[in-house]
Amino acid sequence: MIKLTFEARRQLGYRLMMAPALLLMAAFIVFPAFYAFSLSLTDDALLGFAAQESSFVGLRNFERLFGDPLFWNSLKVTLIFVIGSAVIGQFLLGFASALMLQRPVKYKGIFNAIICLPNAVPEMVVGFLWISMFASGEYGTLNRLVAWFGVEPQQWLYTFPLLSIIIVNTWRGIAFSMILLTSGLASIPKDIYEAARVDGATDNQIFWRITVPMMMPTIFLYMFISTVTTFAIFGLVYTLSRGGPANSTEILGIYIYNQSFTAFQLGYGASVAVVSLVVSMLLGMVYVKALKVEV
């Protein structure tokens, strides 16, 4: 009898300990995520008549959304941004770094620290640093670099805006991909390599027949995490270009912000948010199912 009440008291204790954190996450993340769905069905606005009294408009926002070339543009820009920086750029450079650091090279710690450095920089400073790198005119750092190869000075953020933000995000994310892929490489048993060498396998064969297949789960995990985080990027691109010029770098996060707080259409902005939420939740569920995440 006493034991039972003790147990019951303990269970109550766990719930009480959980409550404050849950309350905060519910108020600022979970409830807003659901609230976005109901807001997307209204004509809510920051200014004007609808700001006083918004009304239910059904799926009109979504009708407008799917007929809006700017929305499709934003979706396309986001896709290119994610594939260019997370799937290709960060992955290839991070994998290359991880592989090279597996070899018996000197100064591993220094290389490691240098590659990690960009990841530690706050988003705003990233924008600040790269605006100087991309500065136009012959004194811009990048322009001076490409001048060695005989390339004329460019206005990078105007001529190649999407490529520019892809380069910046690649720069920032090499560290993460390197660290994750290094831990994957370290978990491949060494005797497989030794056996392959004894059998006379070449470096190339070892890489494609052993390293790559053994790394598949890690690569999959990397692809998932980097896709989801790149999808959620805002500050990095906003400080560099604010979505411009002419919407060419308007990734979904910035499109939501611009529609809601620059064009003042909260209801319409919320409908874009719903699309973004649905996409990321689908990705998340695929991940939880596919990896059978241990909890």
Binding site: M25, A27, F28, I29, V30, F31, P32, A33, Y35, A36, L39, V228, F231, A232, F234, L252, G253, I254, I256, Y257, S260, F261, L266, G269, A270, A273, V274, S276, L277, S280, M281, L283, G284, M285, Y287, V288, V293
Partner: peptide, 20 residues
Amino acid sequence: AIILVRIVPPPALIVPVYKV
């Protein structure tokens, strides 16, 4: 649920969070 909450992109929350 915590894994899924981790994945919610903050820019998608700005309008409803602003209202809250």
